[in-house]
Design a protein around this nucleic acid. Structure first.
Lengths: 291, 291
DNA sequence: CTTAGTTATTCTCGTAAATAGAATGGAGCG
DNA sequence: CGCTCCATTCTATTTACGAGAATAACTAAG
């Protein structure tokens, strides 16, 4: 059984004869007969009764007619779905915890409203973890913290973040790296790009000489900083969505503090969903893109 | 797009590679590659991303995988349905008014209970009308009143009817054809086999010299006979299902009065439904088959 | 009754499509 | 570096398909 045979069979039934079906299909009658005979042989059932040089649908033929219609309709639908460029299916998107908390909600709401045939799966993780999942094809795209290696990825800059150092309200002003001597560093686990920014500002290869408290939630970090447990570096946009944060902010130089959040995907594998998201975020007004 | 291509595609996805798919399908890897490439070309979309000599499903491929599964499942279902011999679909059955009234109800109930996938359409009509519809394939089978022409039909005897002449209760006994002189004949319209039986008993080619009242319902005929409007010939089994009938019965010779009702179908075109019905009625207990 | 016009089918033949088999070129591993 | 595994390309052979002519069976009109 194949679609060509079913199409021929369907035409014979609908046109009511081999010759009419043949002319409709731009075939010669003998070709149509051969196709029907082969279909009958492959099914092991006579699809038509031959009587006085006329064809009449047999009960088995009537049954097959229904299935032929359904199969042809479904295959057309498959064609449309697959060759169509409008987003559908599952879209696996990765994002940093910070981006998820501050920037993403309105973007995802807009995407979801516009592309109802897409099932959106959002995965949060650190910069490095997301990149790893991207290469392993567990993600279609991700919002991360640094421009990725150009040979394997493509990206567009989307958000601009301003990182700021925060401490408890009663902490002394912090101007230089030396001012935080003795403080505990509160940060995301290894793999977080913001943590590397902090290392660079401190002029260190690692945070080994500091006491470090690793937390996986900005709410937890802010709560600990407020309580005087230590200091942390985070995007100001995140602080804005935690209104209960009662912390003191300490500016660090723009060279380190200004970060762009790119949307990243595997080179040459941009899917309709990613394309749609890219278009959508590129059209975002400035106040939704920079702090 | 055809089923072979979809099957190959499905195997590549499920087996996770061209070589494994090829060995499963008893094909050579190059054949599989060619098939996939052609499928991609016909769809106008890349189904896989090629990366480091490995294949990974693209979003379009994931979509097609779903459709391929559904299409293959549906085609298997079609195969089962069509090549299967258990009754399904529509079963168009014809029967005489008399058979429908007296014998058929329990038979049809049994058939319906047993073959739930069959939509039963019952058409009533005279012997000749049913035979005509059978020839024209508007019916799959029919219960009629006479054995049909053997070159075009097959049949089995199912019911045995005893025809009886009925009149009003105050009518004089009827022994011979001569006794009904002056009475109106009440009968079904032309085409009814019972009417021809009456003609034979009367020894006539037609009923032209009698006054004839043509009715299309046994209830109407019985009512008119009861009222003394005339006499009629009908199966005793029909009288039994009209308990309110207050008529006098007059026996006629068995040679004319005993009628067998065959189930008839077109020669060589017995469908699963007809086969099932034939088996069912052949197994009927005697009291449901003879008066 | 014959003839012209249907119908589906069978047959042969050339072409198009699919497969097999060998060869090629990366990529990963010890 | 050699070995293995992978997908792919190329070419020859086999297979499948459709065209076209011829046939057989039937219908309707002259």
């Amino acid at each position: 059984m194949n679609f060509a045979d079913l199409q021929v069979f369907k035409s014979v039934v609908e046109e009511g004869g081999v010759i009419r079906a043949a002319s409709k299909l731009h075939r010669v009658p003998s070709a149509v007969t051969t196709r029907i005979k082969q279909l009958e042989a492959s099914m092991g059932v006579k699809l038509f009764h031959r009587d006085k040089q006329r064809l009449h649908l047999s009960p088995a033929g009537e049954l097959l007619k229904d299935y032929a219609d359904r199969l042809i309709r479904l295959s057309d639908e498959a064609r449309d779905a697959v060759s169509g460029t409008s987003p559908r299916g599952t879209f696996r998107l990765g994002a940093l915890e910070s981006t998820t908390a501050s920037r993403l909600p309105p973007v995802l709401a807009g995407f979801h409203a516009r592309y109802k045939d897409v099932r959106l799966e959002l995965v949060t993780g650190t910069n490095d973890a997301l990149l790893k999942q991207l290469v392993e094809r567990q993600l279609d795209a991700a919002f991360i913290a640094e421009p990725p290696p150009a040979q394997a990825f493509e990206h567009i800059a989307v958000f601009t973040e301003r990182l700021t150092l925060i401490s408890s309200l009663d902490h002394a002003p912090i101007k230089r790296a030396g001012d935080i001597d003795g403080d505990t560093i509160i940060a995301f686990p290894e793999g977080c790009a913001y943590r590397r920014v902090l290392q660079r500002w401190l002029g260190r290869d690692s945070l080994a000489t500091f006491r470090v408290l690793e937390l996986s939630s900005y709410h937890a970090i802010v709560a600990c900083v407020t309580a005087g447990a230590g200091i942390a570096l985070m995007p100001e946009s995140v602080l804005e969505v935690i209104p209960q944060a009662r912390v003191r902010r300490h500016a660090i130089p723009k060279a380190q503090s200004v970060i762009t959040t790119p949307l990243v995907w595997r080179r040459g594998e941009i899917s309709p969903s990613v394309l749609a998201l890219r278009t959508l975020v590129a059209a975002l007004p400035k106040q939704q893109r920079v702090a």
